[in-house]
């Protein structure tokens, strides 16, 4: 289901406009890099897409509703549970049989290059591995909208590259993916761009 933004603008209280007049259609199967300088309102726009923030003007339509999944800047998981358990959880919650969930989780771990860590506890993962796990888990939840906030901001360039390398795996039928970033390489790993630069009045 595409997400339509029509003349969306936002400012906090009586403050300056962060952006105005944002009109676009976000299509499933694409991975949008949401870029712009720090403070330009990237996280705010993700919040608006998630429905947690009501825009000051304009509207966001997501035909058919569905789940929105948020992947936070800081990876988080259950320290002692196995890596694969994290990916299985949304699959089991969706009603998959245990064996199917495990098989599908195994596939996702392979796509996000975590197969070797499948049975390790979450706490043993490096920052880049944990961030890749968050992306794999986000996809496992099969959302209509997957919002990823600064997946590489906390990582050094080498580690960030391992995350950039799997960004393409986020392209998922039926899911609109938006990745907020100010990292050029992360941006280039995405299929499309959505730039807030120049939307400030």
């Amino acid at each position: 289901m595409p997400v339509r933004l029509t003349a969306v603008g936002h400012r906090f209280g009586g403050g300056p406009w962060l952006f105005r007049d944002l009109t676009t259609v976000l299509e499933p199967g694409h991975v949008y890099a949401l870029t712009g300088p720090s403070g330009s309102g990237k996280s705010t726009l993700l919040g608006i897409l998630a429905g947690w923030i009501t825009p000051s003007e304009g509207g966001v339509e997501c035909d058919g509703g569905g789940r929105t999944t948020w992947v936070a800047q800081h990876p988080h998981g259950v320290a002692r549970r196995a890596v694969i358990d994290h990916v299985e959880l949304p699959l089991l919650a969706a009603g998959l049989q245990a064996s199917d969930a495990r098989a599908r989780a195994g596939d996702l771990l392979e796509r996000f290059r975590l197969t070797d860590h499948a049975d390790h506890p979450f706490s043993s993962l490096s920052g880049g591995e944990a961030q890749r796990l968050m992306l794999a888990r986000g996809i496992a939840a099969d959302p209509t909208l997957l919002l990823v906030d600064e997946p590489t901001a906390q990582l050094d360039r080498r580690t960030a590259a391992t995350v950039d390398a799997v960004i393409g795996e986020l392209a998922h039928a039926g899911t609109v993916v938006v990745v907020a970033t100010h990292d050029a390489q992360t941006r280039d790993a995405c299929t499309d761009r959505l730039d807030l630069e120049g939307l400030q009045p």
């Binding site: 789940r67 999944t69 948020w70 988080h76 998981g77 259950v78 959880l89 949304p90 919650a93 969706a94 888990r137 496992a140 939840a141």
Partner: peptide, 16 residues
């Protein structure tokens, strides 16, 4: 709470 909220976000119901 973070683990619980995260599970809820990933589709696990409160009753479960």
């Amino acid at each position: 709470r973070l683990e619980i909220a995260s599970g809820r976000h990933l589709g696990v119901s409160m009753s479960a």
